[in-house]
Design a protein around this nucleic acid. Structure first.
Lengths: 130, 130, 130, 130
DNA sequence: GTGGTCTAGACCACG
DNA sequence: GTGGTCTAGACCACA
């Protein structure tokens, strides 16, 4: 995995270390990161995104505690065997909160369901191609 | 408006005051809160949800600064005249970030677009009826 | 809970933050810390043991991620409802690794079982009284 | 001594080189490794457990520095004459820290002494037979 | 008052 | 080379 594949937005309200954990967690659950795949080193990620190594280290440590990554001493972090692509139900569980939030906000804004779905469909297509 | 119409989850990652401002802002933008409508008093909201009155007050003050609410001496806060239901484009802008997040997460999880849309559609229906 | 009830040994091979997490985890599992009990603030613990607040904060955050503690915004950390005293089997699971280590080392050292048990029994009594 | 008699767990929290030094030190103190006994070569151990030869070499060097092993040119490492089975008091000293840890954890978990001793006794028996 | 986050820099442990 | 740990200090967000 390339350090630049992570998308870090330092200005976001979401803490940097949480952006990292969330993305890696989802990439592993979705199968784009497979058991045994090596992750970019803490220093690589830190340099690539101009952030502090400890911030990256914190994210990796948390993923290790969750069982998503395992530490190979002296070699770095790799995706854990136990973190093979999640079965469908567990993957949906990871996106459920975001879907709930969208539905609630749409109801509060009284936005029509059909157009909402159309807008989401458009985004899903756009991001598929590139 | 009834104090209990607000949905507050103290354990959520989203700060309490932001849950309040977000919901009121969207209810006003969507037209469910109309100019002149009275809001529950700070004490009512605080008591109803067992949260700190200062937190509610802070949310109201921020909405006042935004022009969504106005403070009527002795009567409390009411929805501002200028906060009539937003035209469509501005309303969509309020939900765009949440849509972006869903699309990005779905791509990372490699979730199929059709089922994702079906799941969202289901939630939109469910929440419409009750 | 008093900040001084934690036993911190800065010279130990075990990292400080792990000493904290281990002790709190076991005290909650054993019922000496009950759901709702407040923990000493990060700053209190740091001052009491002359360690860096961030070290304490790191331990608390990890316990929150595990579900042992919950954060009450602006108030501090309390023991989670879900962290009521563990049933017996789960508590034993927490000490199993240490028991395994003792048994393995005793076998390697060819130490007699009866005297080993006697020595452990003695320690268990000593620590019970004070 | 056979290379496979060492029990190495690369994922353990205990560093690999320390697993090696600890086991050999205890086997020598307990008399299962006697002065003059040959140890498996660095390459054998490394191959048998799929670990880095440097790690094994480092463990051996440390044991040599302690006087547990001696390096015989062309023959490899053998147990030192001075490393005859330790007298009882010194052997107990090697297991004391582990006993202390068990006692402390048991107290924090509020586990009953009698059952704890029973569980340890069971492990000591089980591991004696095979 | 509470905890959260990040930085900068140091030192260590491991392979 | 790898990650781990800790410190010191700053600033922020929340209640």
């Amino acid at each position: 995995m390339d350090a630049y594949l992570l998308s870090i937005q330092p200005t976001s309200a979401e803490p940097i270390y949480r952006q990292i954990t969330g993305q890696i967690r989802r990439l592993a659950a979705g199968g784009q990161l497979r058991p045994g795949d090596a992750l970019p080193s803490v220093r690589e990620v830190a340099a690539a995104h101009a952030i502090n190594p400890m911030t990256v280290s914190r994210a990796y440590s948390q993923l290790e505690a969750e069982g998503v990554l395992v530490r190979l001493r002296g070699k770095g972090m790799v995706v854990a065997e136990a973190a093979a692509a999640d079965p469908s139900p567990r993957r949906w569980a990871l996106i459920d909160p975001a879907l709930d939030a969208v539905a609630r906000q749409a109801r509060e804004l009284e936005l029509p369901a059909d157009e909402l779905l159309a807008r989401l469909a458009q985004r899903l297509q756009q991001e598929d191609s590139p």
